[in-house]
Design a protein around this nucleic acid. Structure first.
Lengths: 195, 195
DNA sequence: TGCACAATTGAGCAAGTGCTCAACAAGCTA
DNA sequence: TAGCTTGTTGAGCACTTGCTCAATTGTGCA
């Protein structure tokens, strides 16, 4: 197998392991075992587990953002919010948010991950801001401070993801969807001046 | 030293270690080393590290909630939001949110922690709901759906805590404070019907 | 065919993990 | 004083962690 292909395969296996066991409990041997290769192979391609971990998070978090970005690009303005919230809650257990929540948490102690999360956060912020801008441009509401609104919606989703992914009875994916939709409504007709 | 006192001391030491190293990296030996006692002592008081960990999180998270609850109890209605946001951002680096973010994240894989987080989340939700209710009762705004508003504000704060605690330049504590204050304004004069 | 270089192996190391357990110390009761 | 309970010790076990490295395999070029 070629070097580049193997590299990609390792990143993918690492991603799956992290999704299963969580960032902090995933181990190098989990990855090699899943690929059915020797434990040493991993370090032939990646100098350290930390770097592979960050690379795996980067690859798949950015892929998710590109996915929703592409989806929104072919969506009419009046359907943007519905499209966005549907995508957000595509898994009823919010399982695809696990990696992201893990990454935000671990980034506080891992500089490699911090860089990844910071970049992703910027992209995420842009996606939300562009939804608001397109809706305003289409004459469907006004928004006095798009930046602030985008920050609020982004943070709201992260927070909701934490509760829903908890799997408790308190809040399910559908309710979270509703709450985010209402937030868009609040932001798109509000008259609150920026601080 | 009496058993009960020693127990409390261990919980406190565990809390400090967790605050330093994070939930997933903190170890039993860190706790005993910090107390300058033998590694075995810990298991004389707690059957497992997981249970001590959950107990430490429970103790200090509930203490935080009682703190803000007590603070709000002696606050006039028109100052409630300011009091709340000041308390929320009492540390400019949001360091006191680290344990809470850690706990939410780890709770997905740790049933003991899940129970703690669920309870705390309920209390947290009540604190926010009561702020809204008291402001409405004082004639300072209306809120068509207090439950939904409280969920949104709670999740918003968790999400913002994640960004701010990241320590990046993107968003600081003061900005987070402003965003939460604006959210209260949005919720307290909005006319969005519940889903 | 032979050589070179890459990919791959797997034993193994040093460090760290939670936890056990026989032994010891200290204080209280009988 | 003797005995018992309780707090405390620390060596040690079985296991996992990331990572190393000499040895081996395999593939493509000369």
């Amino acid at each position: 197998m070629s070097g580049a292909e193997r590299r990609r395969q390792i990143i993918h296996a690492a991603y799956e392991v992290i999704l299963d066991k969580g960032l902090s409990e995933a181990a190098t041997r989990d990855v090699t075992r899943r690929m059915d290769v020797s434990p040493g192979l991993l370090h032939h391609y990646f100098p350290s587990w930390g770097q592979l971990r960050a690379e795996a998070v980067r690859t798949f978090v950015m892929a998710e953002i590109e996915e929703i970005d592409g989806l929104l690009a072919t969506t009419e303005a009046y359907e943007l919010v519905a499209c966005f919230t549907d995508w957000m809650a595509k898994d009823p257990a919010f399982r695809h948010w696990g990696l992201w929540l893990d990454a935000i948490d671990a980034a506080r102690r891992d500089p490699d991950l911090a860089a990844v999360v910071t970049t992703a956060y910027g992209a995420w912020h842009s996606v939300i801001a562009s939804i608001i801008e397109r809706r305003v441009a289409a004459g469907r509401g006004s928004c006095p401070n798009v930046e602030a609104a985008a920050w609020r919606i982004g943070a709201l989703i992260d927070g909701l993801a934490g509760v829903v992914a908890l799997g408790d009875v308190a809040l399910d994916a559908e309710q979270a969807k509703g709450l985010v939709r209402q937030q868009f409504d609040l932001e798109l007709c509000a008259d609150v001046s920026a601080a």
